[in-house]
Design a protein around this nucleic acid. Structure first.
Lengths: 154, 154
DNA sequence: AATAGTGGTAGCAATTCGAAACTATATACT
DNA sequence: AGTATATAGTTTCGAATTGCTACCACTATT
């Protein structure tokens, strides 16, 4: 895995980790309870050498943790870390986008529902710390505390 | 662009379109108001042949629309469609994940804020049609109306 | 001892990427 | 008219990545 994007942008950095054709499918399976190498392999169809590479990167980046479960020979389990579980909104957003924009109403192969009520998830909202919901058109990017200093000729 | 994932899963299908190292950077720029080929090229650093391919796919998939702006020679503008703008939650989720999990508190290079109040976006919530917020642990995947029929030996 | 399952490596062909050079069209400048 | 500049690509080609298939080491089962 060669690092690609070096800009100071969280999206670019995120893409260095999950920006490929397979990684989010692995994560999807992990959210579904899959934790074993061979199960990821079977359920996603990813080649084993790629799965090896991807899992190693994801472990290195703290998305998964690999544990040796001392069962019958060499056996490991890959579980999402806190950081990995924090990818849930990304997965949900992607899922909903796919349903709405690639399949369309009545054609969704998989729905997301509230386990407790059975109601389908319908939208995502962006909230400030005060709990206020922010409209898409009011979202703005702003330099953060870790923004690279502007070249000033210091 | 060869189609890769064929499973009946909205995430897999989404990844066929935006699951690569560059596409979401192009989309990011588009949200920032960029619409020209050369500007996407300059701002993201993507190779021109790849940019050509990606934009063509994105136009084909209805994420962008290409319009001929009759200005000084060959000039086109690529604008997000409704479907493209619907990627905003994906972008926001990815942005926030990167900030929290790859940079950390106080190191964020770019923050998302509410333009009207200046307050930072802090979280995303998943809502049902009734407006109820669903906790991450209560989200469940369920076969939808477009789910492929189970093999029944019909 | 032979067979099967897990978690990988190794080798290799095919595909894709990345950088640079080149093309085509139109405008602006001298 | 000739030259320079800008946009929006296309082409070329070497390098890197991907996708198979085969193989390996370890353990348990038959």
């Amino acid at each position: 895995m060669t690092q690609r994007h070096t800009e100071a942008c969280p999206i670019a950095h995120s893409l260095n980790i999950i920006g490929d054709r397979w990684t989010l499918l692995i994560v999807r399976e992990a959210f579904g309870g899959i934790s074993r190498f061979s199960d990821f392999h079977k359920r996603t169809g990813i080649a084993k050498n790629l799965l090896t590479d991807r899992l190693a990167l994801l472990v290195q980046e703290g998305v998964f943790e690999k544990s040796d479960i001392g069962e019958r020979g060499v056996r490991y389990a890959y579980h999402l870390t806190e950081s990995g579980r924090a990818l849930l909104p990304v997965m949900v957003a992607l899922h909903m986008w796919g349903n709405e924009n690639l399949f369309g109403d009545g054609e969704e192969p998989v729905l997301l529902v509230d386990r407790t009520t059975g109601e389908p998830i319908q939208s995502m909202a962006m909230l400030t710390s005060s709990g206020a919901s922010v409209l898409p058109e009011n979202i703005r990017r702003r330099p953060g505390p870790g923004a690279p200093a502007l070249k000033t000729g210091d």
